[in-house]
């Protein structure tokens, strides 16, 4: 049981710490005051309107992106599949630009468009891969193709309407500085739903690992389950992106780590992915607020710096393993 409680305890402590940390003066005493029902309106405002939404966004996005990656990797049988690599990020980015173009300064619209973009691109890549035979390579290639298409449309739009770029750069690095309670109230329930669906259907993931024919023999409708996985992962990634922008690599790092440490069934693996994903993103976000205090670094920057070398390492290790077989 310790392995389940340990990360949860750390996550809770980190949430407490993150509530305390920040560049405006809320001291420990004030914080405890607010918790026990007192405190000034200013302190309450900072805690509940600024810090709490931001922490919630980081926690939910982290869990969402990481489980999204887990679902994609499992259902496509490809350890490198993740929301970023399948082009979900660029798709969401494109739609955010569209919304900046046609509905400037409307946060709600931005969320919704990011979300729609993620869904659309995932199904484009998945449909393309299904048409070309659903092999490991074709899925990634389809993702790369769709991603490139979105990227080029983004470039065309930037040359056409350069004034929308400002919005775009902040979005593309990713971070939670601009998160509002409204955004969280839209994104968090969607992520909660996706996590629940992933958790409940997890045993099918174990069956799917045995190969399509065997899974079919055991009564699993493989096509329907794959579709469900892809839909859920787009839902999770879309909602996460709508809150925190294009945060890369969480969906790649966390599931891969969990997979190499945990050899058991998929249901606990979903749990670990969610908790460790939340932990990682909250840690990065908190660090990004503290490292160059009183300024802030975008949280996505931390992740990319850690994520790129990790991807390289995974590839090298995979190569070694293949060589040993």
């Amino acid at each position: 049981m310790r392995k389940y409680f340990f990360p949860v305890v750390i996550l809770i402590s980190l949430i407490m710490l993150a509530l305390l940390a920040g560049n405006s003066a809320v001291r420990t005493k004030d914080f405890l005051g607010v918790l026990s029902g007192g405190g000034t309106d200013g302190h309450k405002m900072i805690l509940f309107q600024v810090r709490l939404p931001r922490i919630a966004a980081a926690v939910f996005s982290g869990a969402g992106l990481s489980v999204s990656g887990f679902l994609l990797q499992g259902s496509l049988d490809n350890r490198i599949a993740s929301p970023g690599i399948l082009g979900i990020n660029n798709g969401a980015g494109l739609f955010v630009l569209l919304s900046a173009c046609f509905f400037p300064f409307q946060a709600a619209m931005k969320c919704l468009m990011a979300f729609l973009g993620a869904l659309l691109v995932t199904f484009m890549a998945y449909g393309l891969a299904a048409k070309t035979g659903m092999s490991k390579t074709s899925v990634v290639l389809a993702g790369v193709a769709v991603s490139a298409l979105c990227a080029s449309i983004i470039d065309i739009m930037i040359s056409w309407r350069p004034e929308i770029v400002a919005d775009k750069t902040a979005f593309q690095i990713g971070g939670f500085a601009a998160v509002s309670a409204m955004m969280v109230s839209f994104g968090a329930p969607v992520i909660a739903f996706g996590l629940l669906a992933a958790f409940v259907t997890a045993p099918s993931m174990d069956i799917l690992r045995l190969g399509d024919e065997t899974a079919h023999g055991l009564g699993l409708n493989t096509r329907r389950y794959r579709g469900l996985c892809v839909f859920c992962s787009a839902l999770l990634a879309g909602a996460a992106i709508s809150m925190g922008g294009l945060i890369g690599f969480v969906g790649l790092i966390v599931p891969n780590c969990v997979r190499s440490l945990w050899r058991g069934n998929a249901r606990p693996a979903v749990f670990f992915c969610a908790v460790y994903g939340a932990l990682l993103l909250l840690l990065c976000d908190t660090l990004s607020r503290m490292v160059v205090f009183p300024y802030e670094l975008p949280c996505g920057l931390f992740l990319s710096i850690a994520g790129a070398p990790f991807l390289i390492l995974t590839l090298i290790r995979k190569r070694k393993r293949l060589g040993a077989d």
């Binding site: 045995l210 190969g211 065997t214 023999g217 055991l218």
Partner: peptide, 24 residues
């Protein structure tokens, strides 16, 4: 029940594999 010709040797212990037989 159907057992195809190709059986994958995935990272899973034997008992868990046999437990999956109860999935239906």
């Amino acid at each position: 029940a159907y057992l195809p010709q190709i059986m994958k040797a995935v990272k899973m212990d034997v008992e868990s594999l046999v437990e999956h037989g109860r999935f239906p």
